[in-house]
Structure formats: structure tokens, C-alpha cells
Amino acid sequence: MIINNLKLIREKKKISQSELAALLEVSRQTINGIEKNKYNPSLQLALKIAYYLNTPLEDIFQWQ
């Protein structure tokens, strides 16, 4: 199972779901689904999230 800290990191950086979704060219619902662990992002999307949040990938997504 993958645990993610996306919501915590996104809120710490004061970025809304809508703003992050626009940067990543995905829907706000996609961001919401990832934050709620409804599904895991593709590797490409995970890397883009880490890039736009300027945060190491392993700080956002962790195996458990």
C-alpha cells in the first residue's frame, strides 16, 4: 500500500487542489482522489507532483 503526504505538503505550501490540478493538467477530482488514497498516481504524474511541489518524491509517497 502506498501512503501519501500530498495533502499535508500541498497545504503547507499554501497551494489549493485546483491550483495544483491546473499546474499538472489534471482535474481537481484527480488530486482529491490521490489525497484520499482512492487510487495511486502513475509514475509520470507522481514525478510531476514532486517537481511542482519542489519536494522529493519519497517525501510525498511512501510504501507501507
Rank of each mutant, 00 (worst) to 15 (best):
I15P: 00
K12P: 02
Y39P: 03
K48L: 09
Y39V: 14
P56W: 03
E19F: 09
Y52R: 06
S42Y: 05
L24Q: 00
I34D: 00
G33P: 01
T30M: 12
I60T: 02
L43R: 10
D59T: 08
K48I: 05
I3Y: 08
K7D: 03
I2M: 10
Q62I: 10
L24W: 01
M1L: 15
I9T: 07
K14Y: 08
L53N: 00
P56R: 10
I15C: 05
Q17P: 06
F61R: 01
N5I: 03
Y52A: 13
I31P: 00
Q44N: 12
A22Y: 10
S27D: 13
N37I: 03
Q64Y: 09
L23R: 11
Q64N: 12
I2A: 10
I9L: 10
E25M: 12
D59A: 11
S27E: 09
N37A: 07
N4T: 03
I2F: 10
E58H: 14
K38F: 13
N4K: 02
K12R: 14
S42D: 11
Y52L: 11
Q44A: 15
N54I: 05
K12M: 14
K14G: 15
S18F: 13
I49V: 06
L57W: 05
M1N: 05
E11L: 13
A46G: 09
L6I: 04
L57P: 04
N40V: 15
K14Q: 12
K48V: 05
S18Y: 13
S18A: 15
E11T: 13
I49Y: 01
K48E: 07
F61V: 02
T55L: 06
L57R: 04
S16T: 15
L47H: 11
I31H: 00
K36I: 13
K13M: 14
L23D: 08
L57S: 04
A50D: 00
Q29G: 13
N4W: 02
P56T: 06
S18I: 14
S27C: 05
P41I: 10
L24R: 01
I2P: 07
S27H: 09
Q62C: 07
K12T: 12
I49T: 03
E35H: 02
N4Y: 01
N37Q: 09
N40R: 10
I2K: 09
N5W: 06
A50S: 10
K7S: 09
N32H: 12
L23Y: 14
E35L: 02
L24M: 08
Q64M: 11
Q44I: 12
E11H: 11
S16W: 04
A50C: 06
M1R: 05
E58D: 14
I49R: 00
K14E: 10
I49H: 00
I3L: 15
L8W: 10
K7I: 05
D59F: 10
I2E: 07
S27G: 08
S42A: 06
F61L: 03
A50R: 03
K12N: 12
A21N: 02
K7C: 06
E11M: 12
R28Y: 11
K7W: 05
T30L: 15
S27Y: 03
N32V: 15
T55Y: 07
I15W: 06
K38W: 15
I60L: 12
L23I: 14
K13T: 07
L47P: 01
L47K: 12
G33E: 15
E19A: 13
L23Q: 11
K36P: 01
I3F: 11
E25G: 13
R28T: 15
K38M: 14
Q62Y: 07
I34T: 02
S27W: 03
E19M: 12
N37H: 10
I2W: 09
Q17D: 05
A21Y: 02
Y39F: 14
M1H: 07
L24F: 03
L53G: 00
Y51K: 10
I34P: 00
T55S: 09
K7T: 10
Y51P: 01
I15H: 04
N5L: 04
L57V: 12
I31S: 01
N32Y: 11
K38C: 10
E58N: 14
I3R: 11
Y52Q: 09
A50F: 01
P41K: 01
Q64W: 08
L23C: 08
A22P: 02
L6T: 03
Q29R: 13
L53C: 03
S16R: 08
Q44V: 13
I34G: 00
Y51I: 08
K48F: 04
S18G: 15
V26C: 07
L53Y: 01
R28H: 10
I15T: 05
I60D: 00
D59L: 12
G33K: 15
L6A: 03
L8H: 14
I34M: 05
E11S: 10
R28D: 12
R28L: 15
E11A: 09
I15S: 03
S16C: 05
K12A: 14
E58W: 10
W63I: 05
P41D: 01
I3P: 05
L45I: 08
Y39M: 09
I34L: 07
L24C: 09
S27V: 03
L23P: 03
L23M: 15
I3M: 14
N32E: 15
L8I: 15
Q62M: 10
N4A: 03
Q29S: 15
Y39K: 11
S27M: 04
I31L: 13
Q62T: 09
I60C: 03
K36Q: 15
D59P: 02
I31C: 01
K38S: 13
S18C: 08
W63H: 04
S18N: 13
Q64P: 13
L8F: 14
Q17C: 05
